[in-house]
């Protein structure tokens, strides 16, 4: 019943707003914006894709982590379990709402810099890049919430993941690691793959097979993670955090 999914998504978005997550993400976008505003055009060209990448990946993990933490602390998930809503509707609505919400700040940044700094982008490719990267990382964030016991726990997992994944990304970017072999292997890192598809949205980026590899990996990886892990484990997670 898609109608019910829509009600759930609307509810989640309404709550993100009520719980001030929306204000936080606007604030973060604003801070990024101010930071980028004062750098010169050359640095902006390198920095903007990185900021968009961080926003779509690490920030997505953080946001969804906090949202699920709020939810756990209020035990509202148990009430959801005793409504006619199915687990897949619940999980999907959470994924969609948080993705929409997390895309919002990236979109805001892009829009601002296109307008005021004349950044050149491929609208279609950047849209695809941001949506896929955000969706994937929001899903990863949901799965991480399954494993975390409390807020500090959640933060630790997100931090560990981000550091572990950002390190090879940075090494590659700084040419400390080189060669096609590593470039391909490291695409297994979702942040690396996300970087590939987000960079493709900026004019001047060479699209190679690595782009399609990354896109396919993130899309199918997410589908597999959703079907074979996130959904089957949802009931367990919900019951464990129902608090009653």
């Amino acid at each position: 019943m898609p109608n019910r999914l829509w009600i759930l998504v609307k509810g989640e978005l309404q709550r993100l707003n009520k719980y001030n997550m929306t204000s936080v993400s606007i604030l973060v976008a604003f801070i990024w914006g101010v930071m980028l505003f004062f750098v010169n055009a050359d640095i902006l060209a390198t920095l903007l894709p990185i900021v968009i990448l961080l926003d779509a990946t690490m920030m997505s993990l953080m946001y969804v982590g906090s949202v699920m933490y709020f939810e756990k602390s209020e035990f509202t998930i148990s009430t959801m379990l005793v409504t006619p809503v199915s687990n897949s509707e619940l999980l999907l609505s959470k994924l969609l709402a948080n993705t929409v919400h997390n895309i919002f700040s990236s979109a805001l940044l892009i829009a601002v810099f296109v307008l005021i700094k004349d950044v050149q982008i491929h609208y279609f490719l950047i849209t695809i890049g941001i949506i896929v990267a955000t969706l994937t990382h929001t899903l990863i964030g949901i799965v991480m919430a399954y494993f975390s016991k409390d807020f500090t726990g959640a933060l630790m997992i997100v931090m560990t993941f981000s550091l572990t994944m950002m390190t090879p990304y940075t090494l590659l970017m700084l040419n400390i690691i080189q060669g096609e072999f590593w470039e391909i292997i490291l695409l297994l890192n979702p942040i690396q793959a996300a970087s590939e598809i987000i960079n493709a949205g900026f004019v001047g980026f060479q699209i190679t097979y690595k782009y399609y590899l990354s896109l396919g990996y993130l899309v199918f990886g997410s589908i597999i993670l959703y079907i074979f892990y996130a959904l089957p484990k949802f009931q367990d997670y919900a019951v464990k955090n129902s608090g009653v």
Binding site: R4, L8, Q14, E74, T79, T83
Partner: peptide, 27 residues
């Protein structure tokens, strides 16, 4: 069925009516 759990559970940052309206739509 209708269920009430041992501890009252609601979205604390929403009004009572917003809480109820949200759940009502699911039935």
């Amino acid at each position: 069925i209708g269920v009430s759990f041992e501890m009252p559970i609601h979205f604390s940052k929403m009004t009572a009516m917003e809480n109820i309206d949200f759940f009502l739509k699911l039935y």
